[in-house]
Simulated scan of single mutants.
Amino acid sequence: MRFDLITLFPEMFAAIRDQGVSGRAHQRGLWSLHAWNPRDFTQDVHRTVDDRPFGGGPGMVMMAEPLAQAVQAVRLSRREAGADEADQPAPVVLLSPAGRTHRQAQARRWAASTGAILVCGRYEGIDQRFIDRYVDLEVSLGDFVLSGGELGAMVLIDSIVRLLPGVLHDAESAEQDSFNPALTGLLDSPHYTRPETWNGTSAPDILLSGHHSRIAAWRRQQSLTLTATRRPDLIEQARRSGDLSVQDESILKAVPPSAGEGE
């Protein structure tokens, strides 16, 4: 898997390339990262990549041509490296508030791909003509705005890389994550570890019992209750998908009606 980043701040990506789970996976060659600075594709002495918006208004807009040249260079590099076929180029993805919200299911699909070209915007935005011509997909992390697409791109990459085979020490770890099919898209249950008693509070007895079927039932009950309390929308989504059993519904009936209200 290969990710190409078109960014004015390539040095920011050292964190995800060199640290933690993604860093270890990068060192092992399970994925690769290549950063491309649009300033390297400018023609003027000032290496200009932005200008004032037509029609007036605050801020600056990233120019289309440097970004287009960068995309073309990336595509050529990927083909030469054997990452892409000429007729199946990697998608060009823009981190954007107008994009579809990134979900765990999307991360799982991307984990089976060869990667993507991620465009990290800055300033007030990007010339729409570049977006219309080159961008295949716009992705959002939620209803908030960052100073640029770099942090969003790192979050996106991490959510995908950790799902690659061999990245996590225990493959079941990812299966038990919140939002995953093993939990029917619900939130994970609470977790506890040693010591058994900490600051006068003990871990639940059921988790110390060694009775695996009862532990599994307890975790499902906790998952359902937590999801109904914090993310009732996920409960409704699971119902529409037919993922809740009669026993699940019985557990949910015991959750106070007011628990899922509010934000």
Rank of each mutant, 00 (worst) to 15 (best):
I6S: 06
L8Y: 02
P10W: 07
A14Q: 14
A14F: 10
I16N: 04
R17I: 08
G23M: 06
A25D: 05
H26K: 09
P38D: 08
V45W: 07
R47P: 03
V49P: 01
V49L: 05
D50E: 14
G56L: 01
G57I: 03
P58M: 01
G59H: 14
M63K: 15
E65R: 14
L67A: 11
L67P: 13
A68W: 13
V71C: 13
R78P: 03
E80W: 06
E85G: 14
E85M: 08
A86P: 01
L95P: 05
S96F: 06
P97A: 10
A98Q: 15
H102E: 09
H102P: 03
A105Q: 14
R109I: 03
W110V: 03
C120L: 12
E124D: 12
I126E: 06
R133V: 05
L137R: 15
L141H: 11
L146G: 10
L146V: 13
E150R: 00
L151K: 01
M154N: 05
I157K: 08
S159K: 03
I160Q: 04
L164A: 02
L164C: 06
P165C: 11
V167T: 00
D170T: 10
S173W: 04
S173E: 08
E175M: 09
P181I: 02
L183Y: 06
T184I: 03
G185N: 06
S189A: 15
H191I: 10
R194N: 08
G200R: 03
G200I: 07
D205H: 11
L208T: 00
H212P: 10
S213A: 15
R214N: 14
I215K: 09
R219C: 07
R220T: 03
R220W: 13
Q221E: 12
Q222T: 00
A228Y: 02
D233M: 01
G242F: 08
S250M: 10
S250T: 12
I251N: 00
L252G: 01
L252T: 02
V255N: 02
G260F: 02
E261M: 10
